[in-house]
Amino acid sequence: MGYYVPVESGVKLYVEDLNPNGSKTIVFLHGWPLSHKQFEYQFNILPAMGYRCIGIDWRGFGKSDKPISGYDFNRLADDIRTVIDVLQLDSITLVGHSTGGAIAIRYISRYNGYGVSSLVLVDAAAPIGFTEETADRLLEQALNDRPKMMREVTDTFFFQYITSSFAEWFLQLGLQAAGWSTAAIILTLRDEELYADLPKIHVPTLIVHGIHDKVIPYAQAQELKQKIRNSQLVPFHYSGHGCFWEERDKFNQLLMQWIG
């Protein structure tokens, strides 16, 4: 089931809601510059196992509206709060990948974990995102040859072999975003950091991270483990930045064990 949720005047977010009568709810926040569809290999399995799975496309990405502004972590977290309120969600497991992990952290911090019973950070872009050098290179490409940028992102994303067909599908997920929102998030990842948010996380937190991640180094996951109390770190030894696909069976089993 797919529908739109208004988050401010003139801006609606697309929500994919699978198995709405499921006994436990998982909310998925995708990474930059993708969409909820990156979790296809979770959505294939988890709803049939009795879980309600909700994928949210952030503003500017996927099927959501694409306003010119509103791409800082506070606004993105506010959007998630609105969706949680409108859908009357409670006791959810919030799963955030990469930049989605950063948004999840800001949400927990900003709203005192409202509605969230546990947090899962997947290759999270935290406590920092892009270095200035990386951000400037990606920004130049995003503003001048975005398909080339997305091709290079795809090439560095995975540790395991991907087929040309899969690479093309992945590329198209990124190109569904607007150019301006793609660029705006690069700036957010360069200019914002989340150190002050980490002590405010009070829900049980599972940190999963590919040890071969070339996008967000594994060392950042170790730092999150040190700074988030009541957290657990599980390394994925055969993954880069995409353990949700590269080791999807292990990932799905771990998620189900975590939620119970």
Rank of each mutant, 00 (worst) to 15 (best):
S118T: 07
S165V: 13
I228T: 06
N19T: 05
K12D: 15
K225D: 04
L233D: 06
L76Q: 13
V208H: 04
I108E: 08
I103S: 05
T131A: 04
M256C: 04
F251Q: 00
K227Q: 12
T25I: 04
L206G: 00
L34H: 09
D65Q: 09
E246I: 00
V15T: 08
I54F: 07
L34A: 13
G174Y: 09
G2R: 14
L139A: 12
T134E: 15
L29V: 08
D123R: 09
W169S: 14
Y41H: 15
V27K: 10
L34C: 07
L233K: 12
A196N: 15
G50V: 00
L87I: 08
W32T: 11
Y114L: 12
H97Y: 05
W58G: 12
Q257K: 11
E152L: 04
P199N: 00
F159K: 11
D90G: 11
M49K: 08
K24D: 06
A142F: 09
L46Q: 03
E168A: 12
L87T: 03
L87M: 15
R81D: 01
V7T: 05
Q160H: 04
D123Y: 05
D155W: 06
T163G: 07
D155T: 01
A221V: 06
R190P: 02
H209W: 05
S109V: 01
K250L: 02
I259A: 02
A167M: 05
V7G: 10
R248H: 07
I128T: 12
L194I: 08
F236S: 01
V208C: 02
L189E: 08
E140K: 14
K37Q: 11
D17F: 11
C53V: 06
T99E: 06
L119V: 04
H36E: 14
Q172T: 03
V86Q: 12
F28A: 03
L198W: 05
L89A: 04
I92C: 08
V5M: 10
A77R: 05
F28V: 02
L143P: 02
H202W: 02
D249V: 03
T99H: 07
G62V: 09
L18N: 10
Q253V: 02
L34G: 08
R52Y: 04
Q42L: 12
H97I: 01
G115Q: 09
K63R: 15
M149L: 12
G50I: 00
G240Y: 06
V116S: 04
S23T: 12
I105G: 03
D155I: 01
L175D: 00
E8K: 14
V11T: 15
M49C: 01
E8Q: 13
G129M: 03
L94K: 04
T99D: 05
V116H: 03
T99S: 09
I84F: 13
Q172A: 03
G10T: 09
I108D: 01
L13G: 13
L254N: 10
K66W: 15
P20F: 07
I201L: 00
S91F: 10
Y14S: 10
G242Y: 06
T188N: 03
G115H: 10
